[in-house]
Write a protein that binds this DNA or RNA. Structure first.
Lengths: 205, 205
DNA sequence: GCTATCCAGTGACTTTAGTCACAACTAAAT
DNA sequence: ATTTAGTTGTGACTAAAGTCACTGGATAGC
């Protein structure tokens, strides 16, 4: 159980002890798929380190829904587990992640014994809903150049890095568009002096 | 307190009595705005009869988010009230509605005393999130003709009526597009024999 | 009646994104 | 070293949606 306890500060004693006693910790490598659509869920993941990406797929198009950062959980998984319904989304590891796996069979009891825990999930639900609303707003009103630029800006912030190492194709997927469009728009952003690309890296300016 | 009690069957005794004792019922006329963005909320509405429309606005464009049908509540309002944060969405009356207004100051206590109540809100949150996901899916993959047709189909189903009486402009707003596009696409759907328009009514076929 | 306002219809045009086809480069694999 | 697969860059084209400008109808208020 080697991790920074302050990450779980949202869990008060004595709940924290109970959770830790029943849970396990696992490290997942970059790129690992941890949740497939239609999958039934048996553990609730709480991210301790790293970044998890949650996305949806429509026909052949994908769309990034949100990132789960340390001390956040996947509220979609929570609900799916609570109701024992299959997940509607996918999750994969964006940056190698250490994840606390909480067995869901104990959740109902904990929610009863520690009602404050509900707050946590309400907050997450609300957060994700708000993000989705923003996404819709962007889809509806912004053109690709703005969407792409905001996406990149958001990405470097969340990864708290300098640059982005992704293929144009991957980026296109996250935005629900196609490679050529990304290539073209990136070039345009480069000419406008907003980004710089070299050797497969994209740097914001 | 004149309404069909079975609509509130999701509230078990003795909570139901407490809620009814503290709440009031009000009838709102078609078109009334009951929630503005950025508004702080003091009552949680539970729809007993009629339909409430919840929508969002991005710059000048609107987009329909969901309908609240009888026995449903507005989970966005719930959260806003719980956290005392302003609402991010708008709500207006689509069909004259009888609404139970539950004062939010009592909610925290009730949630503690009757933990099952949380389920209700989780369900609503999940429902709304799923709907929003669908909306995004349609925005991302469907063209206007399909979006419009599905929208109309959905609308008659929810209103359980036969036809739709709305101006092209209103429809355009709900879909986040403009009047001319709706006019044109409706004409196209009419030629394809999927709908019929006469004297301001749209009938599905 | 006359006028103001809202609504539907439509042609012409522009813009944006997506599609197609193909060339050139890189890096890993045998 | 040669093949293979994945990646980027581009030009030409298409399709969809949005914009503009204007028409004629319907309706409500005075």
């Amino acid at each position: 159980m080697d991790f920074d306890r302050s990450i779980l500060s949202f869990l008060k004693q004595p709940l924290l002890d109970k959770v830790l006693a029943e849970s396990s910790i696992k490290v997942f490598p970059k790129g690992a798929e941890i949740l497939r659509e239609e999958q039934y869920v048996k553990v609730l993941p709480i991210v301790l380190e790293g970044i998890v990406k949650v996305y949806s797929r429509f026909n052949d198009k994908e769309l990034l829904l949100y990132y789960i950062q340390p001390s956040q959980s996947c509220v979609m998984t929570f609900y799916a587990s609570l109701k024992n319904t299959p997940s509607k989304v996918y999750a994969s590891i964006e940056e190698e992640a250490k994840i606390l796996l909480v067995p869901v069979r104990l959740l109902p009891k904990w929610l009863k014994d520690f009602p404050d825990l509900n707050q946590l999930f309400y907050d997450q639900f609300n957060l994700r809903y708000s993000e989705l609303l923003d996404t819709i707003g962007h889809l509806l009103t912004d053109r690709m150049d703005k969407r792409l630029y905001e996406h990149l800006k958001n990405k470097v912030e969340i990864m708290n890095g300098e640059s982005i190492k992704m293929s144009h194709n991957q980026i296109a997927n996250e935005l629900g568009t196609v490679r050529e469009v990304v290539t073209r728009v990136l070039k345009k952003l480069e000419i406008e002096g907003k980004i710089r690309q070299d050797s497969g890296e994209i740097k914001l300016i």
